[in-house]
């Protein structure tokens, strides 16, 4: 099995949309978007696949930073981005269909959001 570092690429926020467009134009499909909270920062992983090729792009943003939505490029991202906002409290700007925390409709507020000292 190949090691994860072989197909994990770090990107900056300004690059995000151009990377996504490149993948879109090459007909890659969006596998998933994952958010994790590490040391008071959000770590967002975008995974793409084309056939059996597989690539991940990692973006690290600060707690209050906004991340541009990719849902206008990849429609399927709507669910992932709404999920990240609802569970982690990540600010995603201009989601195509913003469900406004009504995807899972949970009582707890952003249950996965961790404070650094925890």
């Amino acid at each position: 099995m190949e090691k994860m570092n072989d197909y994990l690429f770090k990107i900056e926020k300004v690059e995000l949309l151009s990377v996504i467009m490149e993948k879109k134009n090459a007909l890659w499909r969006l596998v998933q978007i994952c958010c994790a909270m590490v040391n008071d920062q959000y770590e967002i992983t975008y995974s793409f696949a084309n056939g059996y090729e597989f690539e991940n792009f990692r973006l690290i943003v600060d707690k209050d930073e906004e991340v541009p939505s990719i849902s206008r490029v990849y429609n399927a991202a709507i669910f992932y981005e709404n999920e990240m906002h609802e569970l982690f409290g990540l600010n995603v700007s201009e989601i195509k269909t913003n469900l406004k925390d009504r995807l899972y409709r949970i009582d707890a507020q952003t249950p996965f959001k961790k404070e650094a000292n925890e």
Binding site: V31, A36, S47
Partner: peptide
């Protein structure tokens, strides 16, 4: 296709477990 990601931090508890299940991908 199901997607699993685990992130460990050296303790017995994981930092993050992420599962992306096929139906989630098929909803759109």
């Amino acid at each position: 296709e199901a997607f699993y990601m685990s992130r460990t931090n050296g303790t017995k508890f994981l930092d993050r477990m992420r599962v992306r299940t096929p139906t989630f991908a098929n909803l759109p």
